[in-house]
């Protein structure tokens, strides 16, 4: 039996665990490690309310406010908006054409058993935002 897990993420989000079942907007089910860029793009198209943005990593540094976390600086979408988020180094991001990537692939593998590339400045990550209503 399949049960729909809440989207909100606990401290160690289990949806990044290797083998986790992900439901795309098309209804298709895929394992997290098998996802491709096109799966996200297609799901955003089908969902109607969400839009995929290209978010380029422009800076990675240790977080000043929260020890142990890293501050990721992005330029987001066509407007190149500046956005900064603080995340654990093992948090995976999906990079266009590359796949799962994180600031600490070793820790990501330990925690989630999910193979990751090193996340680097210049990588373009998949992010989402609300579709602008006309």
């Amino acid at each position: 039996a399949l049960s729909h897990a809440p989207a909100s993420a606990p401290s160690n989000p289990s949806h990044f665990m290797k083998g986790a079942i992900i439901q795309l907007a098309t209804g298709e089910l895929k394992r997290v490690e098998d996802l491709q860029t096109q799966d996200f793009v297609r799901s955003a198209e089908v969902s109607g309310g969400l839009k995929i943005d290209s978010s380029m990593v422009v800076d990675i540094r240790a977080s000043q406010q929260k020890p142990g976390l890293v501050s990721l600086h992005f330029t987001v979408g066509e407007q190149q908006s500046k956005v900064t988020i603080d995340v654990p180094p093992e948090h995976p991001f999906f990079v266009f054409g590359q796949g799962w990537s994180s600031c600490s692939p070793e820790r990501t593998a330990q925690l989630y058993d999910l193979a990751c590339h090193p996340l680097q400045v210049g990588d373009v990550c998949v992010s989402i935002t609300l579709q602008q209503q006309p």
């Binding site: 949806h15 992900i22 439901q23 907007a25 996802l35 992005f74 407007q79 956005v83 935002t129």
Partner: peptide, 25 residues
């Protein structure tokens, strides 16, 4: 009498960050 084990299914959008401009410092 086997108890069915439910497998959690996560929505696709829970995997990617929601980056809206208002989040910048």
């Amino acid at each position: 009498n086997v108890e069915p084990r439910s497998v959690p299914v996560f929505p696709w959008h829970s995997l990617v960050p929601f980056l809206a401009p208002t989040q910048s410092d």
